[in-house]
Design a protein around this nucleic acid. Sequence first.
DNA 1: GTGGTCTAGACCACG
DNA 2: GTGGTCTAGACCACG
Lengths: 125, 125, 125, 125
Amino acid sequence: MITIDITGRTPIYEQICKSVCGEIARGVYKENDRIPAARALAKELGLNPNTVAKAYSILERDGIIYSVAGKGCFVAKHEGKADKRLTEDFERKTKEALSAGVPKQTLIDIVESAAAEAEKGGNEQ
Amino acid sequence: MITIDITGRTPIYEQICKSVCGEIARGVYKENDRIPAARALAKELGLNPNTVAKAYSILERDGIIYSVAGKGCFVAKHEGKADKRLTEDFERKTKEALSAGVPKQTLIDIVESAAAEAEKGGNEQ
Amino acid sequence: MITIDITGRTPIYEQICKSVCGEIARGVYKENDRIPAARALAKELGLNPNTVAKAYSILERDGIIYSVAGKGCFVAKHEGKADKRLTEDFERKTKEALSAGVPKQTLIDIVESAAAEAEKGGNEQ
Amino acid sequence: MITIDITGRTPIYEQICKSVCGEIARGVYKENDRIPAARALAKELGLNPNTVAKAYSILERDGIIYSVAGKGCFVAKHEGKADKRLTEDFERKTKEALSAGVPKQTLIDIVESAAAEAEKGGNEQ
DNA sequence: GTGGTCTAGACCACG
DNA sequence: GTGGTCTAGACCACG
């Protein structure tokens, strides 16, 4: 399930990109699988079709999906790009925290406790 | 030293907040210490005074500093708020990555390698 | 109707915050209702847009409204924060007066007579 | 005991005025009593002498004290002006709250609970 | 159109 | 000198 947060600084199209990459990384969509039509997804999420179209065009530009006119969008042979996209924000924030002087161990502790909480919270997926 | 990154989505005033919190967390400024005058910092960074003033007023609202009109801004008894502010982005991105299905170990590996690189890169701090 | 008092020590942005909270508390705007666009309100009140924007951003930080860039500002699930904001100044002044030695009954008398006068003066609301 | 809050919007000289009025209203200083010398009070509170002098000159202008060159400042026949000064902020905030739509009873409840808390807290004075 | 950010510059009270 | 407030006006991303 894709959930969109209209509050906050992350643009909606970016959230869509992340969600699709997440589903690709988790194997929901495999290479050459068709992903949901932009218009259908827009309707489902109550978004402007242009917003979803923008997300898809970014994913295409990044080599994660490819589009076939009149057919739809499909997962490309992306060689891990989808996975990398999921962690690039995390990596940037890691570097920022480290350069601000936060000790490595503090960060690892945060990861551990977040993971423990996530495990406890829900066993879906 | 505070460095500002013009590119990217993080507003300048937010970067200033982070930098000041970093210096407080590292003990550069202790409780009731005076932090640099808004106008002086603006001049040093080549920014408009309003931008620094905005950052300072946010830090005051958050209880990390207090301002005395006509005197300056001082570090408040903030009870770890400065430290928390440095890691809250990291924590949010950790949770996002985990809920997207990224394995805990992948995140820890990223932290480790970023820390190794940071250590190699510069020995300041 | 929002009226602004230029004289006195209360900043304009604070008066806007109070006014908006008053309208939320009175039910003029309910949860998820859109409040007036910052620029429209500024024009109506003859103020600079930045002043209204400052008020709105404070209300957002306080969790009373949330903003959706490109859409507008909306009333948040604020759990009485709007009401509390309307009485916090009064409460502070109550405590100050009491600790200065003003008898409780004197304060109640003031409230009673102010309320009587307000009722007589105008029947709006 | 006079305590000064250097944070917040209330100027120091205004706080001094309030404190002196409070002591007059409570009968600590009676008509024609000498109040503390400005310079002595400044030293005691760690303030700039000009700040205390400003407070005293305002009290004199308002007819609450009178000064005798070379002798000091004394409590004037002020006919309740000192008491009124202690409640004028409270009265203003009462009116603001009422005009914002806060019910009279809510304000009275706040006074009652603040008084109850004050009684419980300390029995000094 | 909407909010978000930033620059530029002014004036003020306070101390 | 210092912070606080405000106006004026610009540019941007988003949708």
